[in-house]
C-alpha cells in the first residue's frame, strides 16, 4: 500500500532518514516506534508529501507521492486521514467546526447532515459535549481526540496517527486503541501508528517497525517483536518492563 524506496532526507545537519526501505500492506495496522527525535514524524510526513525526499521514492498504491503534483497530489492526499502530533486544530474554529471542516470544504452536504456526522464522530472519541468549545478551552488530550475525529470523518482508506495516545490517561488510551482497531476491522482501513507506547503497539499492531538512525532496524509481528534480539528493540522493551514472554501478564508490581 505504502512503500518507501531508499528514502534519504537531510534535515538540519544530519540525515534523519538514511536510505529507508519500508512497506506497509493494505489493511494492516503498521506501528512505527523508536526513540524521540529519530524521525518518526518525518517518516509520516513523507507519506503525504509534507516533506519531499532528497533521494528515493515513496509510493502510495501505484502512485508516486514523492513526485506527484497538483491535482494528482490532491487525489492521493484525499485517500489519507492524518492525526498530527499536536492535533493541529484551527484555533479560531470550534471543535465541531474543525471536525466539520473537510466536509464543508469538499462536499455538498447540508449543514444538518454535517452536524449529525460530526456529533457521531465526536461520540466515538467520547467528546460529544466539546462540540461548541474552542480548541483553547480543551486539554491537550481532548484536542488530540477532536483531531482524531477530524482525521476519520472523511472515511479515508489510510489513516496516519502520530502518537494518538500520548498525553492521554490509560483508560482513554485503551478507548482510542479500540477505536483504531475497530476502524481496521470494520472498514478495512490501513493504519500507520507512530507511538512510544509499546503496550498499545503490541495490542493493535499487525506489524511493528523499529526506527533507528534513519533506518528500520526491525519489522515484525508483535509476537516476534517482543522476542527480538535487536539491541535497540530490547532496550525499548526493557524500559517498558516488557519481557520476552508476554507483555501484559507479567508487568512487575513494583
Amino acid at each position: 500500500m505504502i512503500r518507501f524506496e531508499k528514502v534519504t532526507k537531510r534535515l538540519g545537519r544530519r540525515n534523519v532518514l538514511d536510505e529507508l526501505d519500508m512497506e506497509i500492506r493494505p489493511g494492516e495496522t503498521f506501528v512505527i516506534c523508536g526513540p524521540s527525535g529519530m524521525g518518526k514524524s518525518v517518516t509520516l510526513k513523507h507519506m503525504v508529501r509534507l516533506l519531499t525526499p532528497d533521494k528515493g521514492r515513496v509510493w502510495v498504491g501505484d502512485a508516486c507521492v514523492s513526485e506527484a503534483r497538483g491535482r494528482d497530489l490532491e487525489k492521493i492526499r484525499s485517500r489519507f486521514g492524518v492525526l498530527f502530533q499536536g492535533g493541529a486544530l484551527l484555533q479560531w474554529l470550534t471543535a465541531g467546526e474543525n471536525v466539520a471542516l473537510p466536509l464543508r470544504e469538499h462536499t455538498q452536504m447540508s449543514d444538518e447532515e454535517i452536524e449529525a456526522l460530526v456529533r457521531e464522530k465526536l461520540r466515538l472519541v467520547e467528546l460529544e459535549d466539546a462540540y461548541d468549545k474552542a480548541p483553547s478551552d480543551l486539554s491537550g488530550g481532548m484536542r488530540k481526540r477532536v483531531a482524531l475525529a477530524r482525521a476519520i470523518i472523511t472515511q479515508p482508506e489510510i489513516i496516519l496517527y502520530d502518537e494518538p495516545t500520548s498525553g492521554l490517561d490509560p483508560v482513554t488510551s485503551r478507548t482510542i486503541d479500540t477505536l483504531i482497531d475497530n476502524l481496521r476491522r470494520q472498514l478495512g482501513v490501513t493504519s500507520v501508528v507512530v507511538t512510544h507506547d509499546l503496550h498499545s503497539a503490541l495490542a493493535i499492531g499487525s506489524r511493528i517497525a523499529m526506527l533507528h538512525n534513519g533506518k528500520v532496524v526491525e519489522v515484525s509481528a508483535p509476537d516476534e517483536f517482543i522476542k527480538s534480539d535487536n539491541e535497540v528493540v530490547r532496550g525499548f522493551l526493557d524500559a517498558q518492563y516488557i519481557t520476552r514472554r508476554g507483555h501484559w501478564e507479567e508487568e512487575p508490581t513494583k
Binding site: L50, E74, V82, A88, L90, Q91, L101, P102, E105, A147
Partner: peptide, 20 residues
C-alpha cells in the same frame, strides 16, 4: 503571529492534507 503559530503547530500542514 497567528499565521506563524499555525505553521509551527502544523495547522497549515493539516489544511494541506485536507486539500484546503
Amino acid at each position: 503571529a497567528q499565521v506563524g503559530t499555525m505553521v509551527v503547530s502544523e495547522e497549515v500542514s493539516a489544511l494541506e492534507i485536507m486539500s484546503i
